[in-house]
């Protein structure tokens, strides 16, 4: 038996989340005595690096027809690969790709899916966050074939070393009614969902002209910048920076919330962060209840000091 890991690539390189999925699948394979086999579609290089996370074999289907994203094609190919490898478990990252492909595959194979897993399975039962991070559920998959999509940054990385054997794979690709017309990258900055540290600010900053210090703090930390919903709605910051229930959900190692009161809808998008630091003038701001470290103070005084202190680290 084997575990098949879908390792996503972008512009010829494996994504950070490909390694998240490999890490999960590799650890699961080790604890269950199965083989961890990764599948990579389209042009991509550096695939043997997946061996660092316990992957022993990489199937590479290097067809240029798979370079543009079509979940219908990908799920068909993953199903064929799972069949040829005798995989009883299929792993995705719970990211834009996983959210598109894993449900299709679940319906195709009539296989149970748990999306957004935050821990390795306990038998056939998988833990995930529900109610926008306000609770957890233990969900048992009752079908013979199981699909799990893992929430990025949920599991500590276990580097096993070792190198994976890369073999080519091919099968029929179905024709579909979808065409990718254009891909627009909105920023060249660090992607919010992949960033280890995120510096976020809200209405407490009083105006878009005051974001210079937020960007500088992010720069000294190697962090991405984010914002609260009101700030995106009034146009102080671009919409793609909005984190919260209706915006992006993120789970960085460290989240700075500066001048954000911490409404429940905002917390729903960030409560998976490992460490939360809140800086707010209002000692009664609800965000302090969800924080690990807090400073009651004026952002315009605290943030410049913070930048200096980090620089001298």
């Amino acid at each position: 038996m084997s575990i098949l890991i879908y390792a996503d690539s972008n512009n010829g390189t494996l994504t950070k989340n490909a390694f998240e999925a490999a890490n999960y699948g590799g650890q699961l394979a080790k604890s269950t005595g199965k083989n961890a086999v990764a599948l990579v579609l389209g042009s991509a290089s550096g695939l043997e690096e997946l061996g660092n996370y316990g992957i022993t074999k990489v199937l590479h289907f290097a067809d240029a027809g798979l370079d543009s994203f079509d979940p219908q094609k990908i799920s068909a190919v993953v199903a064929e690969a799972a069949k040829s490898e005798g995989a009883d478990t299929i792993i995705f990252a719970h990211d834009y790709t996983g959210k598109s492909v894993a449900p299709r595959l679940s319906a195709k194979l009539d296989a149970g899916l748990v999306s957004g897993a935050i821990a390795l399975p306990n038998g056939n039962t998988v833990k995930k966050a529900v109610f926008s991070g306000k609770a957890f559920a233990e969900i048992e998959i009752t079908t013979a074939t199981k699909i799990i999509s893992v929430l990025p940054n949920a599991l500590d990385k276990v580097v096993t070393g070792g190198s994976a054997e890369v073999v080519s794979f091919s099968c029929e690709i179905p024709s579909t009614g979808l065409k990718v017309k254009e891909v627009r990258k909105e920023s060249t900055e660090l992607s919010l969902t992949e960033a280890d540290i995120v510096v976020s600010a809200g209405r407490g900053l009083k105006g878009p002209e005051n974001w210079g210090m937020i960007e500088e703090l992010a720069k000294v930390l190697g962090a991405a910048t984010a914002c609260s919903r009101p700030v995106a709605d009034i146009g102080w910051r671009p919409h793609h920076e909005h984190v919260g229930q209706t915006g992006l959900a993120i789970r960085p190692n460290l989240y700075f919330a500066i001048g954000i009161s911490g409404a429940i809808q905002h917390l729903a998008g960030v409560n998976g962060s490992k460490v939360i630091v809140v800086i707010n003038t209002d000692a009664e701001a609800p965000f302090f209840k969800a924080a690990d470290y807090g400073i009651v103070g004026d952002a315009f005084e605290v943030v410049p000091k913070l930048i200096e202190a980090i620089k001298s680290l």
């Binding site: 679940s106 559920a137 998959i141 409560n271 302090f288 690990d292 470290y293």
Partner: peptide
């Protein structure tokens, strides 16, 4: 047929409390 069953729920452990640092 269904393919998954919810076995149980739990609430996240309460934060041990926010450590306050002087401004």
């Amino acid at each position: 047929s269904n393919s998954t069953v919810v076995k149980g729920f739990s609430l996240p452990p309460a934060k041990s409390g926010c450590k306050m640092i002087d401004a």
